[in-house]
């Protein structure tokens, strides 16, 4: 197992999976036509990481637009994190959003309602 990085495209975010730091970063837009295919390696990586290590996991998301297919995949990631958290793992998620977009915080809240691990939101807009 190793760290993984993927450059962003118009419809997919920058992805960084850092093995040493136990950290996942997703930055950008997420609307691939086949979200399952795009997120499968990320879900698999997290799954392996959680099986092989006892390390804390930190996830940082800065996603401007997430299509419904990506929302389903994001839920899979959160389900894995929740399961690990319930089993005693240190799990934190930071959701960065731009407050000029009234929908951005709404979608974060719809995810956080489903989880019990620390889920923080941070407004990145500087007036």
């Amino acid at each position: 197992m190793q760290s993984y990085e993927k450059a962003p495209t118009v419809s997919t975010p920058w992805v960084k999976l850092d093995l040493e730091r136990g950290r996942i970063d997703l930055v950008g837009d997420s609307y691939p036509v086949n979200s399952f295919e795009f997120y499968q390696p990320i879900v698999q990586w997290l799954n392996e990481f959680l099986t092989q290590s006892r390390q804390a996991v930190h996830v940082e998301l800065e996603l401007t637009y997430v299509n419904t297919g990506s929302i389903k995949s994001m839920l899979e990631l959160f389900d894995l994190l929740e399961e690990a958290y319930q089993a005693g793992r240190a799990v934190t998620v930071l959701w960065k959003y731009d407050s000029r977009n009234k929908r951005a915080l709404e979608s974060a809240e719809e995810f956080s309602e489903d989880v019990s691990f620390p889920f923080t939101t941070q407004d990145t807009f500087i007036p």
Binding site: Y65, D98, N101, K102, R103
Partner: peptide
């Protein structure tokens, strides 16, 4: 209004 912009964009994408 960025929220509205993304609503229109989202409906188009979906």
């Amino acid at each position: 209004d960025e929220g509205r912009l993304y609503d229109v964009f989202a409906v188009y994408i979906e």
